[in-house]
Write a protein that binds this DNA or RNA. Structure first.
Length: 430
RNA sequence: GCAGUUGUCGCCAAGUGGUUAAGGCCCCGGGUUGUGGUCCCGGUAUUCGCGGGUUCGACUCCCGUCAGCUGCCCCA
């Protein structure tokens, strides 16, 4: 074989694409139910937009961006995440003058130059959602319900972990405290943490090295340094999510606080969360959704001061964890000679459109041997076969056979009669 | 970016220096021009991820490279 897909890219084959679409459809349905509207934005942006918004100190900007010069020497970057571009579009198109909150969702490929593994790709896809213009804790609470609903509908086992990083003030105080706390241990820490000590002390908290964790275990957590307003928010969210109630009384049962959780992007403040699949096939990459509040992002890239909240779901990771592929369509196969069955299929198509019926039709490409055609229909797991051969045509009839129940009947050769039979079989199945 | 590991047909694989690279599944054709998955017969790798090297001779050994997987880093 001559060509291979580049490292970290993936083909979604026909056998999997219906699962993919199901993930998208379920997400879209839930998002739009809560008032999110779709926004479609470019796959690349000016490099500077990501540097500013995602943050110069992040790994994403430092080593993972697909950056290139176009023929006019503009520095462009394939988007590593969606929020920056959505914010740019929000400002540029004056959506900040729309009634608040503005709720947007989007879907598409993202690009990060990293080592690929199961559930981690260089081109990967996210379903992304943003709420702009509201500081209400309803943003957070509603999102937890919305996401629970999506993952329940997709039959995924998951757990939600939440935390608060606090506002700028809270984080500054915590950073000072934490640096002071760890200073004496500096020589005992792993190399990564030594580096993080200066660059991003918060990140030390979710270090995977056991010895380091033992050192940090004695330290206070960011939530103990929350400013008054941040603390009020945090308590309100926990109350609204029922964390102070008995587990049995909560509407979302599998939600816990994780005081060590931090985020990889710089723009978050206060509430942050991750949704973790408890399915073991995901191994190291078990986070299927993550997000948080970003009240300073819009302003930092030149827009009016606008509070924001958002999250992203990783579609490739969901693909590994979702078992079902959604509603199966009913399939028909015509056993016929290569002539005028298309009159009927054209009619059928119009009926399926009007009646919102999921039907797929196949006309056997190799007419001749009837036995082989039936075998072919069985192999393809077809639901109905339609005999429309000389004998039937003479009487203007069709023989329709349900391959699952083996029932067969002769009906007028008309689309509406076929649709009726199919409908009847679907309703008795349910 | 670092470390380990793997790569023979669409899939699962045998083969470990010696002529034409097993087998199974799938797929295609036939037995069977009008009705059920069985069965039988036949077909499908000038080539072992790719490129070099060693050798009389390489799927087998060496080097490089590409890709997958696992851990780290980080993240959806």
């Amino acid at each position: 074989m001559k060509y291979q897909a580049p490292r970290g890219t993936q083909d979604i084959l026909p056998k999997d694409s219906s699962k993919w679409q199901n993930i998208l459809n379920v997400s879209k349905k839930n998002l739009e139910f809560y008032g999110y509207k779709e926004i479609i934005i470019p796959v690349f942006e000016h490099t500077e937009l990501f540097q500013r918004s995602v943050g110069e100190s992040t790994d994403i900007v430092n080593k993972e961006m697909y950056t290139f010069l176009d023929k006019s020497d503009r520095s462009l970057t394939l988007r590593p995440e969606a929020t920056a571009g959505v914010m740019r579009a929000y400002i540029e198109n004056g959506l900040h003058r729309d009634p608040k909150p503005v709720k947007l969702w989007s879907f598409g490929p993202m690009f990060r130059y990293e080592r690929s593994q199961t559930g981690r790709y260089r081109q990967f896809h996210q379903i992304n959602a943003e709420v702009l213009g509201s500081t209400s804790t309803s943003c957070e609470v509603e999102a937890m319900h919305l996401l629970s609903s999506i993952f329940h509908e997709l039959s995924i086992d998951f757990r939600i972990e939440i935390n608060s990083l606090g506002d700028e003030d809270s984080r500054k105080k915590y950073k000072e405290y934490f640096q002071k706390y760890t200073k004496g241990f500096l020589s005992d820490l792993c190399d990564d943490c030594k580096r993080r000590y200066e660059q991003n002390p918060l990140r030390m908290l979710d270090c995977k090295v056991k010895a380091d964790q033992e050192i940090y275990a004695g330290a206070k957590k960011p939530t103990e340094f929350l400013s008054e307003t941040s603390n009020k928010r945090w308590e309100e969210i926990k109350t609204l999510l029922g964390l102070y109630k008995d587990k049995a009384q909560r509407t979302i049962k599998n939600i816990v606080t994780n005081p060590n959780m931090v985020r990889g992007l710089d723009y978050y403040n206060d509430f942050v969360f991750e949704i973790i699949s408890t399915d073991e096939t995901l191994k190291g990459q078990s986070t299927i959704c993550a997000g948080g509040r970003y009240d300073n992002l819009v302003e930092s890239i030149g827009g009016p001061k606008t509070p924001g909240f958002g999250f992203a779901m990783g579609v490739e990771r969901l693909m590994l964890v979702v078992k079902e592929s959604g509603e199966k369509e009913t399939s028909l196969m015509f056993i016929t000679n290569q002539d005028d069955s298309y009159n009927i299929t054209d009619e059928l198509f119009k009926h399926t459109e009007h009646e919102n019926l999921k039907l797929t039709v196949e006309i056997n490409y190799n007419p001749g041997n009837i036995t082989k055609q039936i075998e072919s229909a069985l192999k393809k797991n077809i639901d109905f076969i339609l005999f429309y051969l000389d004998e039937e045509k003479k009487n203007n009839k069709i023989k329709i056979r349900n391959l699952k129940t083996r029932e067969e009947m002769e009906i007028p050769a008309k689309a509406e009669n076929i649709v009726e039979i199919v409908r009847r079989s679907i309703s008795t199945k349910k």
